[in-house]
């Protein structure tokens, strides 16, 4: 049983890693992942073979960096006065409050082992960005977190721009932040609504019936609102 689970997780992580490497995103080993030893060893070995320096971050900086990225995609208010990951660019909840990090850790995605490397790469990009503009970043924070909201936004635009080599990776990361907010995609929707999930509440997502299914018995203006095309066929098709 355990070997089956290990194999599944290994394949998930390797596929994600190979895809990321294929798009040029990762040249660094993914360390500090939750994979069992043999799997982790294989993953490290694969990534070592591919070469490159280790830019992975520790768990605290990894979370803060990926939160800062998610907050750039769907911004929210700071959770507390010393919240540096969330820039506080606007009021109300953002992707972080909506569960963007839980989303990335969802076992089905298989991205967990890659989070330190992704965060590390994001900080490398942030350092490059800052250096290019003669900006000095606070060394006490991960580089992406040390950027202000405007710079985070401009860097995110660069990373996802049409000519960016790793754009598919950053777009996927942005997609996960986005669907954490818009879909509560890491939670069952009925549960998420019961818990007043901040993203679904922000959208004013409709509530289901008592059985957890949606129905709209009232759904139409109930009247003809246009003249139909004169060449419509008897079945309602265009000619």
């Amino acid at each position: 049983m355990s070997s089956g689970i290990g194999r599944r997780r290994l394949v998930a992580a390797l596929t994600a890693a190979v895809a990321a490497v294929a798009t040029g995103a990762l040249s660094a080993p993914a360390t500090a992942g939750p994979l069992p030893d043999p799997a982790q060893g294989l993953l490290d070995g694969l990534l070592d073979d591919l070469g490159g320096a280790d830019v992975s971050l520790g768990p605290v900086d990894t979370t803060a960096t990926l939160e800062a990225f998610a907050d750039t995609v769907v911004p929210g208010e700071k959770r507390h006065a010393r919240d540096h990951a969330i820039a506080g660019a606007t009021g109300g909840p953002g992707a972080v409050q909506a569960g963007a990090i839980d989303m990335l850790r969802l076992p089905e995605l298989g991205l967990g082992p890659l989070m330190p490397a992704l965060a590390g790469l994001l900080c490398t990009e942030a350092t490059r960005y800052a250096l290019g503009r003669g900006k000095v970043l606070l060394p006490s924070r991960p580089a992406f977190v040390a950027l202000d909201f405007g710079d985070r936004t401009r860097l995110t635009a660069q990373l996802t721009g049409p000519d960016a080599v790793d754009r598919q990776v950053w777009v996927l990361l942005a997609l996960f932040a986005s669907i954490a907010f818009d879909n509560a995609a890491h939670l069952h929707t009925v549960k998420a609504l019961e818990q007043r999930h901040p993203g679904l509440a922000w959208l004013r997502f409709p509530a289901p019936d008592a059985d957890g299914l949606w129905r709209f018995p009232t759904y139409s203006y109930g009247k003809r609102l246009a003249r139909e095309h004169p060449h419509t066929t008897a079945g309602g098709h265009p000619a």
């Binding site: 995609v73 769907v74 911004p75 109300g92 936004t153 635009a157 996802t160 669907i179 818009d182 997502f205």
Partner: peptide
């Protein structure tokens, strides 16, 4: 909602799909 990311809130294609104005559009 998985496609909500694609809605554009501004006319700058580089940043139109994310950020503060986009969140306001979501409201």
């Amino acid at each position: 909602g998985i496609t909500n990311i694609l809605a554009q809130a501004t006319d700058d294609p580089a940043t139109s799909w994310f950020g503060v104005e986009k969140k306001e559009l979501r409201a």
